[in-house]
Simulated assay, not measured.
Amino acid sequence: MTRNVAVYQSLQSADEVTLNVFAAACAERGSAIYQELVDDADREWFAQFLELAWSSLSGEADEGELADAIEEFQEWAESVETEDSEGKDFYVMQSAMLAVNAIAVHLNPTAARAEMSGQTLETLLGGFDHRLGGGQPVIVRAGEPSPPPGPLQRLEQDAQNAILQSLSARADQGRASQELLDGIRASCRPVHDEIATATSSVAELAGWDVHAEEE
């Protein structure tokens, strides 16, 4: 899969605000996967992490609260089996980690952490593209270019590009205004909805029970 290399290179010189918002936006779009695969109680639990990630950007959450949230997630993660990278629980865990990583980026803003959010979501959506495209293996011989990204991965790459453009154009290079944050979060909705539809289709193809734990 062809990755969004130019964006990840840009993150290397990005300021902390850009790193934080980039990770939160990835979590917002990727939350569709988690929300489609779990029950109502788990959706509500996850929503708290996602809201905390966005609240941290506007200074409404203290570091103690953020650290506690990460610890709570780690305790939950230990109870989830994710050895099967083709199984529902793998996608549930990885999409949930996007929200937690957004919190982690706020506590320790590094380009590597922010890039991990983008790379993780590209991997998940690339997997969906593969499944929805028939699941045929793609052989790339030495010296040959990587195949182009599928429609979902390309959609995510375009969204990442747009986020960086919005942030680089802001007049105040300090904390992002609430208006800008609200606008960026709202801009994630169309991609979120596309991912939700795709998740439902993948779950049907794979025979996943989307509202129950896998046995």
Score class of each variant (00 low, 15 high):
A14Y: 09
V21E: 09
E44W: 03
A25T: 02
W54P: 06
L98Q: 02
P190G: 10
D40V: 09
T123K: 00
P148L: 15
D40A: 13
I139P: 05
S95I: 01
V140C: 11
H106Y: 11
I163A: 09
Y34K: 01
F73N: 05
F73K: 06
S146L: 15
N4M: 08
R29P: 00
I103R: 06
A77F: 12
A169W: 08
F73R: 07
D193F: 10
V5P: 02
F49W: 14
R3S: 07
G183F: 04
M1T: 13
G64C: 02
A24D: 06
S200I: 02
I184M: 13
S187Y: 08
G143H: 13
N161P: 04
A99H: 03
R141F: 13
L205Y: 06
L167C: 08
E122S: 06
V80H: 05
S13T: 14
L125T: 08
I70D: 08
E204K: 15
D158V: 09
L124F: 00
H211C: 00
E83W: 15
L132T: 03
F128L: 02
R141K: 15
A142I: 11
N20Y: 12
R131C: 04
E122I: 01
A111T: 02
S56W: 09
E115S: 12
N108L: 09
E78D: 14
L57G: 03
A24S: 14
E83T: 14
Y8V: 01
Q74E: 15
A99P: 03
E36H: 00
A61E: 10
A169P: 10
L19M: 10
A23K: 06
N101Q: 12
E213F: 04
L19T: 10
Q153I: 03
L167G: 08
Q160R: 08
L167A: 06
M1D: 12
S55I: 04
A186D: 11
S31E: 06
L57Y: 07
